[in-house]
């Protein structure tokens, strides 16, 4: 933590906090496939049959275990986007300039993945895109650097 200081009746305080979030078995398997194989996996709900991406251990709608792993993408379709230029980065996950936030429905998936699109001046809904994997991968959602026009 940093110094607490007093100024004109206002206290300025700061803190550094380290968190270590357990991914769990399903998300670990998803992230390891990104890292080691540059592959994107979803899981299918045996009840509603939806393929959930990122892979989930259970279907939040049907509340049953997912049973089947399905490879999806790396191509998909943009279903929403928003240019982000000077977004503060409270997440610490990085948000490189020139990228747009986007929801991408990967081929074979029934849900959209929240990620970035780049290498395009004219993002639009319906744009076909493909995953660009990071050179250095650590088992993290940004092992996919962004999606670019396919």
């Amino acid at each position: 933590m940093n110094n607490d200081t007093m100024n004109n009746g206002v206290i300025i305080a700061g803190v550094n906090l380290l968190f270590n979030y357990a991914a769990g078995e399903a998300a670990s398997r998803f992230l390891i496939a990104l890292r080691d194989e540059k592959k994107i996996w979803g899981t299918r709900c045996p009840s509603c049959q939806r393929v959930l991406v990122p892979a989930r251990s259970f279907c939040p709608r049907c509340f049953v275990d997912t049973t089947e792993w399905i490879e999806v993408g790396p191509t998909g379709t943009v279903s929403a986007f928003a240019p982000v230029f000077h977004l503060a980065d409270p997440s610490g996950f990085g948000n490189p300039k020139g990228l747009s936030a986007a929801l991408i429905r990967l081929d074979g998936a029934d849900t959209a993945l929240a990620h970035f699109i780049g290498e395009t001046d004219a993002p639009q809904i319906g744009l076909r895109v493909v995953a660009v994997f990071a050179e250095s991968r650590s088992g993290h959602i940004l092992d996919i650097a962004y999606f670019k026009p396919a």
Partner: peptide, 13 residues
Amino acid sequence: KARDDVSQTELVR
């Protein structure tokens, strides 16, 4: 001490 095999969401489930 540490449940690495489940996320918070899965722990709750």
